[in-house]
Design a protein around this nucleic acid. Structure first.
Lengths: 140, 140
DNA sequence: TATTTAGATGAAACTAAATTTCATCTAGAT
DNA sequence: ATCTAGATGAAATTTAGTTTCATCTAAATA
């Protein structure tokens, strides 16, 4: 059985053609993608409806196959949890998304727990600015 | 002239009754608020329309009177830039928003500039979890 | 393998956030 | 007091996301 099917099986959920396609799309795109981007990416197959994409991504999130990422624009995006926890550099000019391996936050969570009696379960950190290419002539 | 009017004047934009009310609302609410929350907060005055709230917040963002904050839910919120740059703890159970004075990121921006040739202009960092009250019996 | 069924699918209707249009109004310049 | 660029808001529109419900199918069971 292929990797995608195995990953789906491991959650105890039904392994449908649509779910396989959607999961594969996420892995292939390998960056945070919106439901609509997944839908467009798979439109040529004529096998997956918009509703199913939304519902499946929600399911995947619950099953921790994907994690939710929110950028400035407020659109909900997802990326595979096979990618280790990390952050992003997002170019305000061309939209390029650069993964950033460093996470300088983990160590902070414990001290927040202590100082605020607040139990941190997750955090979001994204950087915005201008990539190498766009640094010169900013287009915004 | 009052503080709110002065702040508006300093941007060179017209100082209308609506803008004064909206700015005052943001200062009074003193937490990240959505356009709709501002609209509801001011509804008793019967002087500000929804469209104007959206447009004015956009203007305020451009004029750096407010900054945009995005939480997990994807709704666009704003807070006054009179509040120094900071982050938030957001309770997944009761929705409470606790401001966090610490910013452990500033020092990192320079090294990102060097390592990735990416000029960071801003960053978002929010923590999610359970506040003191909700820690015990999680409701989600 | 055939049957069964809980759960998955998708078209269409709906909701909510945000934006655009356009006729009217007004802050502040003259 | 007059003028006008820009501000306002009701209504229409767009966009992201959700719900409904009739139909279909994965996979459990006979």
């Amino acid at each position: 059985m292929d990797k995608v099917s195995e990953l789906l099986k491991s959650t105890g959920e039904k392994c449908t053609e649509q779910r396989k396609l959607i999961l594969q799309a996420i892995l292939e795109l390998s960056k945070p993608v919106s439901a609509d981007e997944v839908y467009e990416y798979l439109s040529w197959t004529n096998k997956v409806g918009r509703t199913t994409v939304y519902r499946t991504l929600e399911l995947f999130e619950k099953k921790k196959i994907v994690r939710r990422i929110i950028f400035k624009d407020g659109i909900i995006r997802y990326e595979s949890t096979l990618l280790r926890h990390h952050h992003h550099l997002i170019c305000l000019s061309c939209g390029k998304v650069i993964p950033l391996e460093v996470c300088p936050i983990a160590s902070l969570e414990n001290s927040i727990d202590k100082d605020f009696e607040f139990q941190v379960t997750e955090h979001f950190l994204e950087f915005y600015g201008y990539c190498k290419k766009c640094k010169g002539g900013k287009t915004e």
